[in-house]
């Protein structure tokens, strides 16, 4: 394993703990690595945008003698005119182009897959559902006539809850209330899944710090647990020095 990889793995663990130091308080170590992250990520995005689209789809095609990428090139130049106030109006053409292209693909995509398909799939064949599962089947996670009707009623109630052209009174109020309860169940489920997602990310970082995300032989060379311990000592020490300096400053000011 190359030394650069081992040093890199130690730096990686150190940076991880630098970010975690934010949990103690907003501090200079965190701010430093936060700005490092910004610089690296923006630089990375620019490089990948160049190699991912500009080079293969414009430069190399022009080099092959194709002429259509010239239009893209002109549009790009017009877009860059945005940084020169005198010519910034030229940027409206490429912006109009990209907004229209997105609007066009979104319009048909949403109408087809989110509107038509979802509506079509929401009304079940009740006779077939009843024949297969009866009123309620534990074996099929509650599938059955009750759940099918609940789904249709819940969907209709949620839609009516967002319908503001009629006042939410009497019958409409009851339906709307049922819609809210269905929405709450859904948001609760989302919250449960979000907790799972966030803890999973944290597990990933701890796996790295303990060397559990690498093949066993690599972990033995890198010694990530030692790197974690050393980084922890350095960061805690730095935070103590920072706090002492802060309190001295306050004392001098006070």
């Amino acid at each position: 394993m190359p030394t650069t990889e081992i040093v890199g793995a130690w730096i990686s663990i150190f940076l991880t703990l630098c970010i975690f130091s934010y949990l103690y308080d907003d501090n200079p170590i965190y701010k430093l690595v936060e700005h490092l992250f910004l610089g690296v990520s923006i630089g990375y995005s620019v490089v990948e945008a160049y190699f991912g689209a500009f080079k293969p789809n414009v430069i190399n095609k022009l080099a092959d003698g194709q002429l259509t990428p010239l239009v893209a090139l002109v549009l790009v130049l017009m877009l860059f005119s945005k940084v020169i106030p005198r010519f910034s109006y030229l940027a409206r053409i490429p912006i109009a182009f990209i907004v229209a292209a997105f609007a066009g693909v979104k319009l048909t995509g949403e109408a087809n897959s989110n509107l038509m398909t979802q509506v079509a799939q929401s009304m079940p064949n009740l006779a077939a559902v009843y024949a297969e599962h009866g009123l309620w089947s534990w074996d099929a996670d509650g599938a059955g006539l009750f759940s099918s009707l609940f789904l249709v009623a819940g969907l209709s109630a949620c839609l009516l809850h967002f319908y503001f052209s009629a006042p939410h009174q009497r019958g409409m109020k009851v339906v709307s209330r049922f819609g809210v309860l269905v929405l709450m169940l859904s948001f609760g489920a989302s919250f449960g899944y979000t907790v799972m997602g966030r803890i999973s990310l944290c597990i990933g970082r701890v796996q790295e710090m303990l060397g559990l995300n690498r093949p066993i032989d690599e972990a033995e060379i890198i010694q990530p647990q030692l790197a974690t311990l050393v980084s922890l000592v350095v960061i805690v020490g730095s935070l103590v020095v920072w706090r002492v300096q802060q309190s001295r400053q306050r004392g001098a000011e006070g």
Binding site: D141, F150, V182
Partner: peptide
Amino acid sequence: IMDVPNIAARRAIFIGAALGAVATGLRVI
């Protein structure tokens, strides 16, 4: 919960968002 109330709520949101996207798309074009 995931298959019944969640789907009912999500579909309502999807349908609402789709109608919004269609309307906005047409307004832009």
